[in-house]
Amino acid sequence: MRAVIVVPSIVLAATLLVAGCAADAGPTSTASSAASPSSAANPGATGPSASAGTSAAPAGAPDGGTTGGTFSATDVAWLQLTVAMSERLQPVLDLVPDRTTDPAWRRLAARVDDACGADLVRSRRLLAESGAPETNPHEGHDMPGMVTAEELTTLRDTTGPRFHRLVAAHLRAHLTQAVRIARAEQQAGANPATKALAATVVRDGTAELARLDQLDRPPGTTSAR
């Protein structure tokens, strides 16, 4: 039996967010260890600092409500991963209005789309403020919570109840992983504005997961709308 490694939150941030994006890594290969929920929710854990490579933020009060301060390697890596995950989810959300007439599913997709878009804008602004390269280090990588090209092709060819099931699975995977890594950023990050964004991701993601649970119920049960 394979041992499950529980990684302290600060080590999780250093490994998952900084070096955990191996090219062509499948979703299950990373999720079972580095992205374990128990490791992301261990506020008392100790470990090597992930903020060794901090860079000074530009002077002055930036626009959009952000604050000054330094950005640790964890902050930058979390922001980069948040951008990559949000960009990968967008094509899924774009399909919902044309694939379903169910108002509850449309409302859910619209809320997630709005939150995802706002997070994307803030993440890109903070990355620019940090001085990080504009290139996406996760380009072409299939990581936990990301929809693969093959899955998106299948979704585009699907309608009806099966479409709802697939969308629910993709949304749940994305939101669950987004909340996990945002909690790690809250615990191990350094920049106040980046940690505030992580708190927003946790709050909104947790709320949408609860709504998704109401919609994605087994046949024959009643969903609250």
Results as ranks from 00 to 15, higher is better:
Ala178Gly: 04
Glu87Gln: 14
Gly53Thr: 07
Asp63Val: 15
Thr54Tyr: 12
Met143Phe: 15
Ala188Pro: 00
Ser130Arg: 07
Asp102Thr: 05
Met1Arg: 14
Thr28Met: 15
Gln80Ser: 03
Val92Ile: 02
Pro161Ser: 13
Gly53Asp: 12
Asn191Tyr: 13
Glu134Pro: 07
Thr158Tyr: 04
Thr46Gln: 08
Thr82Ala: 07
Leu108Gln: 04
Thr101Asn: 14
His170Leu: 10
Thr154Trp: 09
Gly140Phe: 01
Ile5Leu: 08
Gln187Tyr: 08
Thr74Cys: 12
Met146Ile: 04
Glu151Leu: 06
Ala57Met: 06
Ala13Asn: 01
Thr135Ile: 04
Ser123Lys: 12
Val147Leu: 07
Gln177Pro: 00
Cys116Met: 09
His164Val: 07
Pro218Phe: 13
Thr15His: 10
Gly131Ile: 07
Arg180Lys: 07
Val121Ser: 01
Arg172Leu: 06
Pro218Ala: 13
Asn42Met: 11
Ala169Lys: 12
Val201Gln: 00
Asp98Gln: 14
Leu12Arg: 03
Ala56Phe: 10
Asn136His: 04
Leu171Trp: 05
Pro161Asp: 11
Asn191Arg: 12
Ala45Tyr: 01
Ala59Tyr: 10
Ser9Pro: 00
Gly65Cys: 03
Gln187Glu: 08
Thr100Tyr: 05
His170Ile: 06
Ile10Asn: 00
Gln80Asp: 11
Pro27Met: 14
Arg88Cys: 00
Leu155Arg: 01
Ala109Glu: 00
Gly26Ala: 15
Asp94Ala: 13
Glu208Ile: 03
Gly220Glu: 10
Ala173His: 09
Arg106His: 11
Leu152Arg: 07
Gln177Ile: 03
Gly64Asn: 13
Arg180Pro: 00
Ala115Phe: 09
Thr82His: 11
Gly20Val: 04
His141Tyr: 11
Thr153Gly: 04
Arg183His: 10
Thr82Lys: 15
Ser55His: 12
Thr67Tyr: 11
Gln214Ile: 12
Ala84Gln: 12
Trp78Ser: 00
His138Gly: 00
Trp78Met: 00
Asp114Cys: 13
Pro62Asp: 04
Gly60His: 14
Ser33Thr: 11
Glu185Gln: 15
Asn191Ser: 04
